[in-house]
Structures are given as structure tokens and as C-alpha cells.
């Protein structure tokens, strides 16, 4: 019970923290829409072409804009010592990674999830595809959060070259993109592809606490 309360109040803290910095999250979403704008201008406003490549475009831009906020993932808590305090409050590093991953999913990816319908309207994507986009992104974004946790914890001590973190996430998200966009283009094999996505989610979910926890411990140790 005590442990459960601690988890609940951890999220209370995350909520307060994200509420005070909600403009950061909003900036991510604005980046997403502005890049859609840029994309449309660069390929011309031809409706047919846009609805053809729209889904892939939305996925690419979602990936890019969600990697923008990666730096915030652990960096703030690490630099002001809160990570250590949370650890001393009774969470192992692996568990902190899991909690933080869900927090990233809730406060960064869910706003993107909510902005997908608007993007679909802007890009003339058929309504029946919206469901597939939703389903694939709700699983895919959780995978992205796990990958983000791994890469940003790896780069905590890396002061010189943080872009590396984004590159790591993008490299490992290649299969996610393949299968998620595959779902939307091949609706008849929805079940099998969504199962593959689930499988990838379980794999990264299993790796995440180990890899991130180890990296967090290392960074705190050598701070």
C-alpha cells in the first residue's frame, strides 16, 4: 500500500512538473503541425498525392517531434539531484525507468495521439484509416517511449553530442515504422501486424528497465 501510494505521488509530481512546463509539450505539437505545413508546401497541395503519402508522413513527423523532447527525459531530474532522491525514496533504478517511461507516454505521446485526428483532417486521410493510425500509434508511441528512455539514459553523461540520442531512437524505431505504416496500407493483415508490434513492444519493454537502469546507475555513480 505504501509502495502504491509512492507510485501515485510520483505521478502527481510528474503531473505538477509537466503542468508548469506545458508550453514545452505544446511546442512539440506546434513543431508537428508546422512540419506538416512545410511538407505540404514542399510536395505541392495535390490532394491525391497527399492522401497517398499522408499516413507515412504523419508517422515520420510524429517520430521526429517526439524525439525532440528526449533531452528532457532524465536530464532535468538528473542535474538537480531528484533522480537520486527518488531512488533513495525506495525505487530501484529499473523501476524508475519504467515509471518515467509511462510518464513520458502520458505527458508527451498522448498529446500527439490527440492531435492525430486534426492532422488527418488537414491531410485528407479517410476516416476508416484513422482507427488503424490510432491503434498503431498507441502501441508504437509506447515503444518510442521505451527507446527514448534507453537512449536518453545512455546520453546523460554525454555533454558534447546529444543529437546521438535522437539518432539512436530513430535507428531502432525503423521496424516500428515499417509495421505501423504496414498496418494502414494492408488493412486485411491488421491482426498479424498488430501482434508483431505488440511483440516488439514486449521486447523493448523487457530491455528498457535493464538498460536504462544500468545507465542511470552509472551516470549517478560517476557524477
Amino acid at each position: 500500500m505504501k509502495f502504491l501510494n509512492k507510485i501515485i505521488f510520483f505521478y502527481y509530481r510528474e503531473y505538477k512538473l509537466n503542468l508548469s512546463g506545458f508550453q514545452d509539450i505544446l511546442t512539440n505539437i506546434i513543431f508537428f503541425f508546422v512540419s506538416i505545413l512545410i511538407f505540404i508546401f514542399s510536395i505541392g497541395p495535390d490532394k491525391e498525392v497527399i492522401s497517398l503519402i499522408g499516413v507515412g508522413m504523419i508517422w515520420t513527423l510524429l517520430l521526429l517531434s517526439s524525439t525532440l523532447s528526449l533531452r528532457k527525459f532524465y536530464q532535468d531530474d538528473y542535474e538537480n539531484g531528484n533522480l537520486l532522491i527518488i531512488h533513495l525514496n525506495g525505487f530501484s533504478f529499473g523501476f524508475i525507468a519504467i515509471l518515467k517511461t509511462f510518464s513520458h507516454f502520458l505527458f508527451v505521446q498522448v498529446p500527439f495521439l490527440l492531435s492525430i485526428p486534426i492532422a488527418c483532417i488537414l491531410l485528407n486521410i479517410a476516416n476508416d484509416k484513422l482507427f488503424y493510425l490510432f491503434a498503431s500509434f498507441s502501441i508504437g508511441s509506447l515503444i518510442l517511449s521505451c527507446l527514448g528512455s534507453i537512449s536518453s539514459s545512455m546520453n546523460l553523461m554525454n555533454q558534447r553530442n546529444f543529437l546521438l540520442g535522437s539518432v539512436i531512437v530513430m535507428i531502432f524505431s525503423v521496424p516500428v515504422i515499417i509495421f505501423s505504416v504496414g498496418i494502414i496500407n494492408m488493412e486485411e493483415s491488421f491482426n498479424s501486424l498488430i501482434n508483431i508490434l505488440f511483440g516488439i513492444l514486449l521486447i523493448v519493454f523487457a530491455i528498457n528497465p535493464w538498460a536504462s537502469g544500468l545507465c542511470l546507475k552509472l551516470s549517478l555513480e560517476n557524477n
Binding site: 508548469s20 538537480n80 537520486l84 533513495l88
Partner: peptide, 17 residues
Amino acid sequence: YNNITYIADKTTSLNRL
């Protein structure tokens, strides 16, 4: 850990709040 308080030389209070 349940019996200690650690205060680092950093300020753990959240700046924006």
C-alpha cells in the same frame, strides 16, 4: 533507505514551481 534523508549539494527543489 527508509531511515535516511540525504541532502546533496544541489538544490532538489523544482525551479519552475
